[in-house]
Design a protein around this nucleic acid. Structure first.
Lengths: 165, 165
DNA sequence: GTCTATACCCCGATAGAC
DNA sequence: GTCTATCGGGGTATAGAC
């Protein structure tokens, strides 16, 4: 709290004019982050009734968003263990809503015979883990552009869920 | 430190007969964990000069090992930020050695024309992130056996790296 | 080798003047 | 609304008796 106060140019005590306590501050940060993810995906342009195109939109969106907000994504994961039980439940519900969006796409793609995945739910968890991992190694100074990385991850996503040729 | 001491049945001060300080304890735990991963993979039975079979061995080994040591894997990742610079370098070098084992398999598979991945290094990072993610959701009480989960992740790994039919 | 006791420091949060 | 000052508690680590 003293470090945050220093960064915004006040003494630690002054922070308590704006927040009741540290736990609430952390919870609000994480809730806002998750809601921004959900709203951004909601607003992401994509076709309807075209599961493979929706899957491509999701994969590219997820990679792009997670590279744009590396620190927030890192915190949203690492600080889960510092949330009190009730707050954790709320955040996990938001995460589940995001996961469900991908599961829904995969189920529709499978029903349409476009992909062969044997388990859409597990596939969704695996794909999200794979895509999220990009933030652990990607650096703009490296040899790959963000677009090139999006291409690679989309290609891998499509293969992982068992595209039917 | 007081909690550790309580769990092993001594007072906090007595711990310092065994370790110089807390940082050294954390570093030793994480180094031991990484060395155990490397040694276990080294000892894992697998064919030689058969990149696809080696890839299957790696995928199944990684899933199995990470389900057997969920807590250790979790700590090895979450506590990275609490390592001092020199210690962090040592641990990251061990992680890199493990990643390199997979990159090597993928490069040989690609050179042999068995997989189509456009970037073996990125593919290796993506595959490891995907496989490691299993520990965030898998529970023995769920509907899937560990073997069934291994099967799914191996199938997805093969697709992700672009198996050539 | 373990104990009790404690030094020293940092934390979140509050009190009360301005 | 911000400040200074401080409370109460917890942290790692050490001192010294046994």
């Amino acid at each position: 709290m003293r470090q945050i106060a220093g960064d915004v140019g006040v003494q630690a005590g002054a922070l308590y004019n704006y927040i009741p306590d540290k736990q609430t501050l952390l919870f609000n940060l994480m809730r806002d982050h998750m809601e921004e993810v959900l709203e951004a995906w909601d607003a992401e342009p994509r076709p309807e009734n075209d599961p493979l195109a929706e899957l491509e939109a999701f994969a590219r969106f997820h990679v792009r968003f997670h590279l744009e907000r590396r620190e927030a994504v890192f915190i949203a994961y690492m600080e889960l263990r510092n949330l009190e039980a009730d707050n954790l439940s709320d955040i996990l519900a938001l995460r589940k809503a995001y996961e469900t969006a991908l599961i829904d796409i995969l189920v529709r793609a499978k029903d349409a015979g476009l992909i062969a995945t044997s388990n859409p739910k597990v596939a969704a968890f695996a794909v999200i883990a794979m895509l999220t991992g990009v933030q652990t190694w990607f650096r703009d100074a490296g040899g790959l552009s963000r677009e090139a990385v999006e291409d690679i991850y989309w290609e891998m996503t499509l293969g992982a869920v068992g595209k039917v040729d």
